[in-house]
């Protein structure tokens, strides 16, 4: 996946320096930043503040930022802010999700299923430590490549490989355990 983190055609790498509206960057990236903050463990009650922090930094730094990798830069800010919130916040111990995801669901049945799946996702992500969780979210949910994650996190690629591999294994096992627990006969769960 290209690391432009923007809608196609926006802020492509290597473009000449031209004025870019902050709003353009915001609208092209808000959803992803929001979603990533959430998946990195920022509590719902703090999502507004965390997203605001990300984009205040973006606003302040945008003019001096390297135009080649806006996506990586945004993810780096997002990961940093999420880490701050995870460490500083008294997060809710349970039920980290609000009902807001219902907005995107087309039908009550589908909504319910999706809601449960997202809850499960967050429950499983909670089982990963912060480094593995970050690597896993960027790799498996945001679908960044290992070199891209390496750039975002500022760690070498072998480290990223190692974290992603460990996180996958842990996530896999946790999901399997969950399904065995909720569906002991082993029936397919979708």
């Amino acid at each position: 996946m290209a690391l432009s983190l923007t809608e196609p055609g926006l802020l492509a790498a290597g473009e000449a320096a031209t004025p870019v509206a902050f709003e353009t960057v915001y609208s092209a990236n808000f959803r992803r930043v929001w979603r990533t903050l959430r998946r990195l463990g920022v509590a719902d009650a703090q999502l507004d503040d965390a997203a605001q922090d990300v984009f205040v930094v973006v606003h302040r730094k945008l003019q001096s930022f390297d135009g080649r990798s806006l996506g990586g830069w945004l993810y780096a800010i997002t990961v940093r802010v999420a880490s701050d919130y995870r460490r500083g916040a008294s997060r809710r111990a349970t039920s980290p999700l609000s009902d807001s995801i219902a907005d995107a669901a087309p039908s009550p049945a589908r909504l319910s299923e999706m809601h449960e799946s997202v809850r499960l996702l967050h429950t499983l992500l909670e089982k990963l430590d912060e480094k593995k969780r970050t690597a896993f979210v960027l790799s498996e949910l945001e679908q960044l490549s290992v070199p891209e994650i390496s750039e975002v996190l500022g760690v070498n690629q072998n480290t990223v490989y190692s974290r992603v591999r460990a996180a996958r294994s842990q996530f896999d096992a946790a999901l399997r355990r969950h399904r065995q627990h909720t569906n002991p006969r082993g029936t397919k769960h979708r």
Partner: peptide
């Protein structure tokens, strides 16, 4: 496992913010 991949596929785009979320945060910024 394929099951895990399917699960991730299912939830990958499942929790987008609402337009109101987007407006509210932009105003705060």
């Amino acid at each position: 496992t394929p099951e895990t991949r399917a699960f991730l596929e299912q939830v990958r785009d499942a929790e987008d913010p609402t337009p109101e979320d987007e407006r509210r945060v932009l105003a705060a910024v």
